[in-house]
């Protein structure tokens, strides 16, 4: 522990404190809220010991039973029966139970329909930028079924220089209802290049970039999709020639 740098330690402690306080206050808030109630409409529903499809069913709630819906984790909702028995019910089962007005609750597990009507998408990709390893994180906002606005941050690690990029792009998918859905993208951003200190003694530089690209989204399951992408970048340097770079990436994304 002798040489762990102090600044890093302080910032980590602060981040930790904020995160834990956030978690605790979220919980405190959750406990104050009124609990949602529903009535079982189907002949019976299974209650499991833990949130997972493999866990044993230890109790069944019958038609007409009233359930308190405590909270949801992934596809499972923790419920409490009038007799105080607590267990986990799948969200699709809860979706067929009735609320106070007698309407189905209409909860459901995320599926292909939720994928085609998604608003937000984020993901992480790895790949090759100009023959160097690259790492990309992005967030996309779908403002029509076909168009989305994406912000991406990436880093690449070369033998001679490392680079960081921030990019904003418009992404157009022609067939949003397809499971294998191709897209085209165009955008611009900035790139910071840091020559490796051990090798070359040149200064960091920041350049503007423009890019076009194409790719494919593949819906996998639940909230998960696979994304393959090619982008062609022009880095507008101060030198005589602009850099032209090919980037190939593959990654996993989730939507919500």
């Amino acid at each position: 522990m002798a040489g762990v740098n102090k600044r890093g330690y302080a910032s980590l402690c602060a981040a930790l404190l904020v995160a834990c306080l956030g978690a605790l206050s979220a919980r405190a808030l959750a406990e104050d809220e009124a609990v949602l109630q529903s009535t079982v409409a189907q002949p019976y529903i299974d209650m499991r010991t833990q949130p997972g499809r493999g866990y044993p069913v230890f109790h069944v709630a019958e038609r007409g039973d009233k359930l308190d819906l405590l909270f949801q984790r992934t596809d499972w909702i923790k419920v409490r029966t009038a007799k105080g028995i607590e267990g986990w019910v799948h969200v699709n089962d809860i979706g067929r139970t009735l609320d106070a007005r007698g309407d189905p609750l209409a909860f459901k597990s995320p599926d292909f329909d939720s994928y085609t009507s998604r608003t937000w998408e984020f993901g992480f990709m790895v790949g090759d930028y100009d023959s160097t390893d690259t790492l990309v994180a992005y967030l996309g906002w779908h403002f029509t079924p076909n168009l989305s606005l994406e912000l991406a941050a990436s880093e690449n690690y070369g033998d001679f220089s490392d680079g960081k990029m921030a990019t904003a792009s418009i992404v157009h998918q022609m067939f949003p209802q397809w499971r294998y859905s191709p897209f085209l993208t165009i955008g611009g951003g900035v790139r910071q290049t840091n020559p490796r200190s051990t090798l070359v003694a040149t200064e960091d530089r920041t350049d503007n970039t423009a890019n076009v690209g194409a790719g494919l989204r593949v819906y996998l399951t639940k909230r998960l999709l696979l994304r393959l992408q090619y982008k062609y970048y022009v880095v507008m340097t101060d030198r005589d020639d602009d850099e032209e770079v090919n980037e190939w990436t593959v990654g996993l994304s989730a939507f919500f």
């Binding site: 949801q72 984790r73 909702i77």
Partner: peptide, 14 residues
């Protein structure tokens, strides 16, 4: 159909 507010606890931090 009004979306019902359900407390989802899918985040983990520590």
């Amino acid at each position: 159909i009004e979306p019902v507010a359900m407390d989802t606890e899918d985040f983990e931090v520590g």
